[in-house]
Amino acid sequence: MAEATYPATGEERLEGAAVAETNVEGRDYYVRFSPYHRLSHFVMMTTFIGCALTGPPLKYSYDFWAQAMMGFWGGVENAGLIHRVMAGFMVADFVIHVLYLGYHIGLKKAKIFGPDSIFFWKKDLTDALGMVKWFFDRGPRPRFERFTFWEKFDYWAVFWGIAMIGTSGFALWFPTVTSTLVSGIFLNVARIIHGDEAILAIGWILFVHLYNSHLRMNVFPMDPVIFTGRMPVEHVKHDKAAWYDRLVREGKIKPE
């Protein structure tokens, strides 16, 4: 898959995001997620599924499905081991991501707020209101920038979620260390956080995230962008009009 010659500065190449590519199936593609982003998401996805298949059967120990699943894993200890291995990779992925953020914000002086940033900004609020209007046909679809507000929400939900589930998970993993460092009652707190956050995360991924990536109208049955990194330019244009305009303006993609 040859990369097109469309201008991509060194910096953008590093970020890996702003590279245009032509003629995969005769369409123009825009590389939206860098190899790092894709790998990071892949690790997050697989380890999350691993944890979600081994943790909840413990929480719902009294249900027959939980007992069947525990049987499948070969008992609580095995499931616990898989859970911990998966969790280890997940936390590693998270830590690397934090370092990545630190590198870009601290060293590369990436702007914290702006159209390329995953941080919320004012436009998200007007976009959200615009979306509601659009849902009821009372206005045009908002002209989104690089990240829509629900994508940002999605990202921060995961960010917060991993931080909470990871901290509480480690607290439960090493209960005696936790009680030495703080106190035994924090193990009670950690159990609540871990179990409830798991419900929150699984529910969110299942009903919102998977909806966004599979069932959202124009991506049905699946949006492969997170695995290929590539997004058809026509999709960019319709999905994220403001971003499209900016990319064209900056000469990063060829206008359709």
């Binding site: 979306m131 509601v132 659009w134 849902f135 046909d137 629900w150 929400f153 939900a157 929150l200 529910g203 969110w204 009903f207 919102v208 909806y211 966004n212 069932l215 959202r216 109208m217």
Partner: peptide, 15 residues
């Protein structure tokens, strides 16, 4: 959170 996500998703499906 589920209210936010649920409403957004349902409206999107509706549309």
């Amino acid at each position: 959170v589920f209210a936010f996500g649920g409403i957004h998703t349902l409206l999107y499906i509706y549309r």
